[in-house]
Design a protein around this nucleic acid. Structure first.
Length: 448
RNA sequence: GCGGCUAUAGUUCAAUGGUAGAACAUCGGUUUGUGGUACCGAAUACGAGGGUUCAAUUCCCUCUAGCCGCCCCA
């Protein structure tokens, strides 16, 4: 991207290269996950695979790219996600395709397309992967982000809702973070629509008292009115009719039973009538996971690290035979951020145990297969064969935080011996090269 | 999409209307084989464009990006 005029002066060649590389920067709202941060991701992944296997969830992966219409139909034609946040483009065949902004539609599609309703119901699945939304980047919000998603499809029973919420809670607990589940019931679409009518009628005479945003919400997104942080709107909201009082009887029953199950499994939750979710396919149970911080830490309202709910119409929407469903997803960047900040951050980076240092051509040659011998025997070993100075190598060993360094120099090479150096106190010992594996293992065992 | 703040080496920060310093990190050396604790040296930066000016990294404008808030969401 650098300008042509700068190319004129050939003396500036190195500078130009530097500049050019600056211009080819990462896309807005996208993030690299660097090696030193990967331990958090691996920790989350490992925990997820274990937990979901234990609870009988199968892992599924669905494409990053799907027909745009899949998302329009499921998430909702008029939602923000579909109208302005999707990476949508035409492929070479002229079809409109979109990078997935959500995991659930793809999984539901797979359920229908692979005839999963012929499997024992319900079908339990989980999925981990990147999602894309063309949104303005902000704290905890990126254009490519990752979710851990779980779904139970083919189960109307409130215990399925409770299981999803329970597993979400359990997962947070395993990660060592404190959370509380904010939970609500949206009822069925019909009862919800009736409630929205009521809500409009309630606010309309008071329109003048609302903030500018809420005036728009009144017609476009009435439920969101309840969520406004303006004090004047809040006052009005206090007296507003509550969704929960207008639920159809079956939904009410369903909700009560979900809560009973949650009480039984000791999941901490709060009823929150303002959880409405931004996707059209939700009905009945809706919930969000809010992290709980020590009070000194945060003066702002914490962001939800996950959310989900029931979607009993979704499968039918995409052309399958009707099947009930309930699911949730964690935002992994936010989740990891909370783990990172929490005092119980238990994620430890794996440290290598031994550094193998070599001196001289002959020793280096011998050290190379020795590395493999150590690795094969289960010792976590590191080396840098292209460095020749012992000082440099010990420096690296120190930075890696190894317990022992082993030094193979020209002298040791000739004697068929090797030095073991205790990195904590600098005490060295010469041992037979033959016995190095046993000697190291013996010492490492004592060290534990 | 709207608003606020910011933009100097890999990182964290300085200084300055006359083109920039430090710390840490990186690489190399201190007579040839010893780190965590010395000393010396090297490479690396004013986000982009325009304007004011004899002169701009410094002042002004635009753009871009980052952070934060709104909207929305994970």
């Amino acid at each position: 991207m650098f300008k042509a005029k700068k190319v004129k002066d050939s003396k500036q060649e190195p500078k130009k290269i530097k500049r050019a590389s600056k211009h080819s920067a990462i896309l807005r709202g996208f993030k690299d996950i660097l090696p030193e941060h990967m331990c958090y991701w691996q920790h989350v992944y490992n925990l997820a695979h274990k937990l979901f296997f234990d609870y009988g969830y199968g892992q599924i992966e669905v494409p990053l790219l799907e027909q745009t219409s899949l998302y329009k139909r499921t998430i909702g034609e008029h939602t923000d996600i579909v109208t302005k946040e999707m990476f949508t483009f035409e492929d070479k065949g002229g079809d409109s395709v979109s990078l997935r902004p959500e995991l659930t539609p793809g999984i539901a599609r797979a359920y229908v397309e692979h005839g999963m309703l012929n499997r024992p119901q319900p079908v339990k699945m989980y999925s981990i992967g990147p999602l894309f939304r063309y949104d303005r980047p902000q704290a905890g919000r990126f254009r490519q982000f990752h979710q851990l998603d779980m779904e139970i499809i083919g189960d109307e029973n409130p215990i399925a809702d409770a299981e999803i919420i329970f597993l979400s809670y359990l997962f947070c607990k395993k990660l060592g973070i404190d959370v509380v589940m904010h939970i609500n019931s949206l009822g069925m679409p019909e009862s919800r629509e009736e409630y929205i009518k009521l809500l409009k009628e309630y606010y309309k005479p008071k329109r003048r008292l609302l903030c500018e945003d809420c005036k728009k919400r009144l017609t476009k997104n009435t439920l969101r009115l309840l969520d406004c942080k303006e004090p004047s709107c809040r006052d009005l909201t206090q007296e507003a009719p509550q969704l929960i009082d207008y639920l159809d009887d079956e939904s009410k029953q369903h909700f009560v039973r979900v809560l009973e199950y949650l009480d039984e499994s000791e999941v901490p939750y709060e009823l929150n009538p303002f959880i409405v979710r931004g996707l059209d396919y939700y009905n009945r149970t809706a919930f969000e996971i809010m992290p709980v911080f020590e009070k000194a830490e945060e003066d702002k309202i914490p962001q939800a690290i996950g959310g989900g709910g029931r979607y009993d119409q979704l499968i039918e929407l995409i052309g399958g035979r009707p099947a009930h469903g309930v699911g949730m997803a964690f935002g992994l960047e936010r989740l990891i951020d909370v783990v990172h900040k929490s005092k119980k951050d238990s994620v430890k980076r794996k440290r290598p145990q031994v550094f193998l240092a070599q001196l001289g051509e002959e020793a280096a040659k011998r050290a190379f297969p020795l590395f493999e011998r150590l690795r094969e025997s289960g010792i976590c070993v590191r080396a840098n064969f292209s460095k020749s100075g012992l000082k440099q190598q010990l420096e690296i060993a120190d930075k890696l935080g190894v317990v022992y360094s082993v030094i193979l120099g020209q002298k040791e090479f000739l004697d068929e011996t090797i030095i073991i150096r205790d990195m904590e106190n600098g005490i060295q010992e010469v041992v037979d090269l033959e016995k190095i594996v046993d000697e190291l293992k013996k010492r490492l065992k004592n060290h534990e």
